[in-house]
Amino acid sequence: KYSDMIVAAIQAEKNRAGSSRQSIQKYIKSHYKVGENADSQIKLSIKRLVTTGVLKQTKGVGASGSFRLA
């Protein structure tokens, strides 16, 4: 599940300011076997996790910027 992968990526990075979408994508692609549409799936999952309150956006708008666990 992409949401689990995103949470794992943010936990692994341990950046106080949060993790960027690009760094999350890079982590997921190197640690998991994902399909061609992974980028758009990650983007959608990040937006969903922010609206449900699992992630907090520290910089930027939408799916860009930095995110950390709430």
Rank of each mutant, 00 (worst) to 15 (best):
S40H: 13
I10Y: 00
S20T: 14
S3E: 15
L55K: 01
S66P: 07
K59E: 07
Y27K: 00
G65H: 13
K14I: 04
Y2R: 01
L49G: 01
S66E: 07
G62T: 06
D4V: 12
S64P: 09
E13V: 07
I6T: 01
A38G: 04
H31D: 02
F67D: 02
E13I: 13
V34M: 05
T52L: 14
A63Q: 10
S64H: 13
S66V: 13
Q25L: 15
G53R: 03
S64M: 11
K14M: 08
N37L: 06
A9P: 01
G65A: 15
A8F: 05
G60I: 08
S20C: 05
K14N: 14
K1H: 11
S23T: 08
G62Q: 05
A17D: 10
N15A: 08
G65E: 14
S20A: 04
Y32E: 00
D39S: 07
A8G: 03
V34I: 05
T58C: 14
A17V: 08
N37R: 08
V61C: 13
S64T: 13
V7L: 13
N15W: 05
I10A: 02
I24Q: 00
N15H: 08
I42A: 00
K26A: 12
Q25A: 14
I46V: 03
K14R: 10
E13T: 09
S64Q: 12
T52Q: 13
A70N: 08
V61G: 12
Q22M: 09
D4K: 10
D39P: 05
S40W: 13
D4C: 15
A70V: 09
K59I: 08
S20V: 03
G18D: 04
Y27A: 00
I6M: 00
R21H: 11
T58Y: 10
A9T: 01
V50Y: 02
L69P: 03
A70D: 04
K43E: 15
L69Q: 04
Q41S: 06
A9N: 02
N37E: 12
I42W: 03
D39W: 09
L49S: 00
K14C: 15
Y27V: 00
K43D: 15
N15E: 05
M5E: 01
Y2A: 00
L55D: 01
G18F: 04
S19P: 04
K1R: 12
S23K: 05
K29M: 09
K29R: 08
K29V: 07
L55E: 00
Q25E: 13
V54A: 04
G62F: 07
S3W: 06
N15R: 08
E36C: 11
V54Q: 04
D4S: 09
E36R: 14
Q41E: 13
S3T: 13
K1I: 10
Y32G: 02
A63T: 11
A17C: 15
Q57I: 12
T52D: 10
K14T: 08
G62P: 04
R68C: 12
V54Y: 05
K33V: 11
V7Y: 04
K1E: 09
V50G: 02
G53C: 06
A8I: 06
R16M: 10
F67I: 05
G35M: 05
A8T: 06
F67G: 02
R68K: 11
I46N: 00
I10W: 00
Q41P: 00
V7I: 14
T51N: 12
S19D: 01
V50C: 15
G18A: 04
I10E: 00
K1Q: 09
E13P: 03
A63R: 12
Y27M: 01
Y2F: 09
S45W: 15
S66G: 12
L55P: 01
H31N: 08
I24N: 01
G60S: 07
K56R: 11
D4Q: 10
Q22R: 09
E13K: 07
Q57G: 04
Y32I: 03
A17N: 13
I10N: 01
K59S: 10
M5R: 02
A17H: 13
N15P: 02
R48K: 10
L44H: 08
K26Y: 07
S30C: 13
G60H: 07
L69V: 07
S45A: 15
K43C: 13
N15M: 05
I10P: 01
S40C: 11
K29E: 07
A9L: 07
L44E: 12
N37I: 05
